[in-house]
Amino acid sequence: MAVPVYGALALAVLIVALALASGRFDIDRGLLDDGIASTVFFLMIAYAMRWLGFERLATGVEMMMLSAIIPIAMAFCSLVLASSAWPMRDAELAAIDVGLLGFDRQAVVATARRLPWLMMVSGWVYRSAAMTPYLLLVAMIARRQLRSAWVVMSALTVTAAVAIFIMALVPAFGTPPYAYRFVDIFIAVRSGELRHLDGSAITGLVTFPSVHAADGVILAWGFSRLGTWALPLVAVNILMIESALLSGGHYLIDLIAGVALAITMIKLMSKTVGRLDRAEHHRGQPAPASEGA
């Protein structure tokens, strides 16, 4: 069931590896060695647990390992692709907002800033994306909803990969205020000044489509499958879409594109993971999920 996750991760790693092999970028060897060693170690633990019949524990270890390594691989991949330095598209995105949607983000943010509590809540909700995926995956594993957990993991990972490729073609800064200090890194990688991949270069570069808006939809869908206790977390992740507008520096069209991408990925990954799960079951392997995705 993990094929989409490993496929997207492998593509990101391949792009980074080609950039390193070509000499266009170099990488922190300590970070690389630690990443490879940790990945191999935890994968061995996960497969040993699965072989011993501890499917849920194995899935938990595997997903936590992936959740740690995927953001790094995707961040480095985005830096490599951003170095292509295609023309910035802020003017076009802003024109879509104003001309087609009749929306002025700067005016909306200026109004929201008159309510400090609103901006504080928006910032908290925006930053909650760093923790809520882990909480969702752990809750799904604890409730034996392993297929749904892989749907969520796959949708989040493939969405990130697709968004990074779109970013390479439609790069944009967005408009302040920004949640992350990414502008200097974006400028440096586009100009050729930044060519060393290390922890200080890890940040979000994607404006269009909004990954936070996409993640908000995916996570809200996931929490909605956990029962009434998770409804507050459904609400938090729906609010994450709004927070991307007030706190994330995004245009309105970024949010619309992110939501559309997320809905597409949920449907696509539900079908893909379901087929993979049924194929595993038909091969006589233990079916790790008893519920539908």
Rank of each mutant, 00 (worst) to 15 (best):
P4I: 01
G7M: 10
A8N: 08
V16Q: 01
A17G: 01
A21S: 09
A21D: 06
G23C: 03
I27M: 07
R29Y: 03
G30H: 00
M44F: 06
M44N: 00
I45P: 01
W51R: 15
W51I: 02
G53V: 12
G60I: 07
M64Q: 10
M65A: 13
A68I: 12
A68S: 14
M74V: 14
C77P: 03
D90N: 10
L93R: 08
G102I: 12
F103R: 08
D104W: 03
Q106L: 04
V108M: 15
V109N: 03
R113M: 12
L115K: 02
W117Q: 12
M120R: 10
S122T: 05
L136F: 01
L137E: 05
A139P: 06
I141H: 02
R143H: 05
L146W: 00
W150G: 04
V158S: 05
V158A: 02
A163K: 11
V170W: 05
V170M: 06
G174N: 03
G174K: 04
G174P: 03
P177T: 06
Y180A: 13
V183A: 12
I185Q: 01
F186N: 13
F186G: 07
R195L: 04
H196I: 08
S200Y: 04
A201P: 09
A201V: 15
L205P: 13
V206I: 12
V206F: 06
T207P: 04
H212Y: 10
A213V: 09
D215S: 11
G222A: 06
S224I: 11
T228P: 13
T228E: 05
W229S: 10
W229R: 11
A230T: 09
V234R: 01
A235S: 07
A235P: 04
V236Y: 04
V236I: 14
I238N: 02
L239P: 13
L239N: 05
I241S: 03
I241A: 01
I241E: 07
S243T: 05
S243N: 09
S243V: 05
S247Q: 09
H250K: 12
I253T: 15
D254M: 12
L255E: 03
L261E: 11
A262V: 13
T264V: 15
M265Y: 04
M265V: 13
L268V: 15
S270F: 02
H281N: 10
Q285G: 10
A287W: 11
